[in-house]
């Protein structure tokens, strides 16, 4: 893969109690690359994504995002400002949107610009408007999230993450909480971002999206990466039997 590494994950382990969820994961995401992570529920793919920005603290391993590294091992305490650096380089979109219900759409988008980046409002508002435009929701700027549809909420959440101008966008099953007829509008926004060269790591069950947009797909099973390749390799010629079994019903339904 060309381009320099934006995310580099080395030998990542995660334990929940006695449950070994991630078993020595190593992978990288390069600049302008769209990496799609697929796998069954409970395979550890969401945990993997959440370890990248330390929403889950890795049990051990090393995370590097555009030059800033944090190394974890049992008993070693992690500096808060190191985690903060990683978080400022990443933008996260959640399955459940997690918009702030007490703020308007625009306030949601500019909140972190004002509190974290310390921008004055006069500087933050144009940035917020720019990204609301990008997701096509500028006309909703002054209403509260409760009045948006699920798809609109997720698009605002994407704008909110983009407004921080991160190096890489992390999507954690962004369409899994949506009604089927609303999935398209969110995927369209994500496709547009991918087309514009945004570096993205996407956990999803949308195999059509993976096939169309991904530069690379990794298949995670029981906390291990068992497949890593282009959509073509993964969908038409998976190396591992487990990937084949996982993809078989999806291929027959979605005709990818």
């Amino acid at each position: 893969m060309s381009g320099k590494e934006v995310i580099c994950v080395e030998n990542l382990h995660k334990w929940f109690g006695m449950l070994h969820v991630l078993k020595g994961i190593t992978f990288a995401v390069h600049e302008r690359e769209v990496l799609v992570i697929i796998g069954r529920s409970g395979s550890g793919k969401s945990t993997l994504l959440r370890c990248i920005n330390f929403l889950e603290t890795p049990s051990s391993g090393k995370i590097t995002i555009s030059g800033d590294s944090v190394t974890c091992s049992p008993g070693r305490s992690i500096k808060r400002e190191d985690v903060l650096k990683l978080r400022l380089s990443t933008g996260m979109v959640f399955q459940e949107f997690n918009l702030f219900p007490h703020m308007t759409v625009l306030e949601n988008v500019i909140e972190a610009l004002v509190t974290v980046k310390k921008y004055p409002k006069s500087k933050a508002i144009p940035i917020g408007e720019k990204y609301l435009n990008k997701v096509g929701l500028i006309e909703k700027r002054d209403i509260h999230p409760i009045r948006l549809s699920g798809g609109q909420k997720q698009r605002v959440a994407i704008a909110r993450a983009l407004a921080m101008e991160p190096k890489v966008m992390l999507f954690d099953e962004p369409t899994s909480a949506l009604d089927p007829e609303l999935i398209g509008e969110v995927l369209d926004v994500m496709k547009k971002l991918a087309f514009e060269g945004t570096t993205m790591a996407v956990v999803t069950h949308e195999m059509g999206f993976a096939n169309d947009v991904a530069d690379r797909i990794i298949y995670v099973d029981q906390g291990e990466i068992i497949e890593d390749g282009t959509p073509e390799q993964i969908f038409s010629n998976p190396r591992d039997e487990r990937t084949r079994i996982f993809l078989e019903p999806i291929r027959s339904v979605q005709h990818v």
């Binding site: 400022l88 959640f94 972190a112």
Partner: peptide, 8 residues
């Protein structure tokens, strides 16, 4: 999580 992911 949403707030902390943005660096708050």
């Amino acid at each position: 999580e949403a707030a902390e992911a943005m660096g708050m």
